[in-house]
Amino acid sequence: MPSGRARILDSIASQQKRSSKAAATVVQFLAGTGLRISEAQSLRWRDIEPEAFVLRTAKNDELRRVPLTTAAKEALETLRAMFPSGAQDPVFPMKSPRIALANACKRLGLPHLRIHGLRHIFATRTLEAGVDVPTVAAWLGHQDGGALAMRTYSHMIEKHSDQQIHKVRI
Results as ranks from 00 to 15, higher is better:
106 K>W: 04
79 L>A: 09
116 H>F: 02
93 P>W: 09
14 S>Y: 02
120 H>V: 05
153 Y>L: 02
75 A>S: 09
69 T>S: 15
55 L>F: 10
61 D>G: 05
49 E>N: 15
123 A>V: 04
59 K>A: 04
16 Q>W: 08
134 P>R: 01
76 L>Q: 02
23 A>Q: 13
8 I>H: 00
64 R>N: 12
86 G>D: 15
38 S>H: 09
76 L>V: 03
89 D>Y: 10
64 R>L: 10
49 E>I: 00
39 E>I: 06
40 A>V: 03
25 T>H: 06
29 F>R: 06
11 S>R: 12
25 T>Q: 09
56 R>N: 12
144 D>F: 04
37 I>K: 08
97 P>I: 06
100 A>S: 10
102 A>Y: 13
38 S>P: 05
17 K>G: 14
18 R>A: 11
83 F>G: 03
16 Q>K: 15
46 R>C: 11
27 V>D: 03
59 K>E: 05
66 V>I: 13
116 H>K: 07
132 D>E: 10
148 L>K: 13
153 Y>K: 05
97 P>E: 04
28 Q>K: 14
37 I>D: 08
99 I>D: 14
102 A>C: 03
144 D>I: 05
154 S>Y: 11
71 A>Q: 14
124 T>W: 08
60 N>T: 15
99 I>S: 12
12 I>Y: 00
76 L>P: 05
72 A>N: 11
73 K>R: 15
96 S>P: 01
153 Y>R: 07
146 G>W: 01
16 Q>Y: 10
147 A>W: 02
12 I>W: 06
113 L>Q: 09
22 A>F: 01
95 K>S: 13
143 Q>H: 12
23 A>C: 12
62 E>F: 03
44 R>E: 15
108 L>S: 02
113 L>C: 07
84 P>R: 13
131 V>S: 07
143 Q>R: 15
133 V>P: 00
131 V>D: 05
19 S>H: 09
127 L>C: 05
7 R>V: 00
86 G>M: 09
24 A>Y: 00
17 K>H: 11
34 G>F: 01
113 L>T: 06
24 A>S: 10
151 R>M: 10
61 D>H: 13
82 M>D: 09
118 L>D: 00
58 A>W: 07
118 L>C: 07
48 I>Y: 13
101 L>R: 00
95 K>M: 06
147 A>Q: 14
145 G>S: 01
18 R>L: 11
95 K>E: 12
61 D>I: 05
152 T>H: 13
99 I>W: 12
154 S>V: 10
89 D>Q: 14
90 P>K: 12
19 S>V: 06
102 A>G: 07
100 A>V: 01
50 P>T: 09
123 A>S: 08
78 T>W: 08
142 H>W: 06
39 E>R: 07
27 V>E: 05
98 R>E: 12
98 R>N: 12
145 G>C: 01
60 N>P: 03
106 K>A: 12
53 F>Y: 15
147 A>G: 00
115 I>W: 03
40 A>C: 13
144 D>V: 04
76 L>T: 02
135 T>E: 03
136 V>R: 01
